[in-house]
Design a protein around this nucleic acid. Structure first.
Lengths: 186, 186
DNA sequence: TTGCTTACTTACTTACAAGTAAGTAATTTT
DNA sequence: AAAATTACTTACTTGTAAGTAAGTAAGCAA
């Protein structure tokens, strides 16, 4: 019955993305899964443990995805990243980095570390992709590739957040212009 | 004693920016101000009322600031916007839009509306500033000015959030590159 | 078949959050 | 001078959060 444990992580992931870490409770998980709150504590003794599991799972998933894309040309790889965010947007969800960073200071250290680790993984991969893609002529942009990666990620992250508040079209407007900018030759 | 009311709003603002809306409590305000939690309820019957006051105050402050800048050339006006975010970064704070958007779905409608109103005010002003600034040759960018405004705001918003998680240098890297991009002539 | 582990439930505890009703002291209005 | 208003405090209530101790049913292991 590893099934329950996986379902808890999946639901917690969704709850963190919709309500935020500090606003979801064990009851939000135990009710739909028709288990008792103590069953969650059995698998994840503290809420921090559950948070860590969610973040770790996301980091793993990201690494698996990027590994699969590694044979593609860089413009296609970046397109895949955009598609990942696109899918989240269609589900009405935001990215973990976007929802966890405002609450970061309320987290115990072990969870903070995991969030930083996840974010670093995103930035490192994007930086490499942009760097290599520029060398091969797929992308055109000024400045350091790492700085540009931070810009790209910040746009993707915030476009999901802003879509919530300013309407769903916001996401498309930001991501479309962002992608055009990177391909543009000066 | 309008003083207490103002102090409550100012502290709530700071708490929302550091811990997030759902993580701060009336005790976080009543303790440092040395008043009872009922005193907060006297001024703001519900937490929603307090949230609305914080957002309204920020919207007003933004409109006052931009009104003061209205005589400047557009590149200086935009610089002022960047400076505003810069100051928040130095204080270790994030912007209201950044901290409130992940929790948006947990808000009652009246607060949601205020957050949307504030965000729209930001976007409208930035859009106008970019539009006029491009016409006068201060800025160079492709596409619609409103779309570009969303990009700029998303970068500023997210750079404050990401700085928390990835270190304080993140903010400077993003904002510097962003500003350069806008001034750049092709 | 006895014992150990897994995956829970039952039934709590402790803490703290938001919110309220009733009272009060000081000031302002009439 | 009396009445009302302002800005609170005292002392609650209600609800819910995270977490735990003890029990149990099912499966497997020796």
């Amino acid at each position: 019955m590893q099934d329950t444990k996986e379902k808890i992580v999946a639901l917690a992931d969704q709850l963190i993305r919709t309500k935020g870490y500090n606003a979801f409770s064990y009851k939000d998980i135990s009710d739909p899964l028709e288990i008792k709150n103590a069953a969650i504590h059995y698998h994840f003794p503290t809420k921090t443990d559950l948070g860590i599991a969610v973040v770790d799972f996301e980091t793993e998933r990201f690494k698996e995805h990027t590994a699969k894309w590694s044979g593609m040309p860089e413009d296609k790889q970046l397109k895949q990243l955009f598609e990942t965010f696109n899918r989240k947007h269609k589900e009405g969800l935001v990215c973990l980095m976007g929802t966890l960073s405002p609450d970061y200071k309320t987290f115990p250290e072990p969870l903070q570390e995991k969030v930083t680790e996840m974010s670093t993984a995103f930035a490192d991969w994007t930086s490499q992709c942009l760097e290599n893609g520029r060398k091969k002529g797929f992308f055109a942009f000024d400045g350091d590739a790492y700085d540009r990666a931070l810009l790209v990620l910040s746009n993707l992250l915030a476009s999901l957040l802003m879509s919530r508040v300013m309407g769903p079209k916001t996401y498309g407007k930001i991501s479309a212009q962002l992608y055009k900018d990177l391909l543009k030759k000066n």
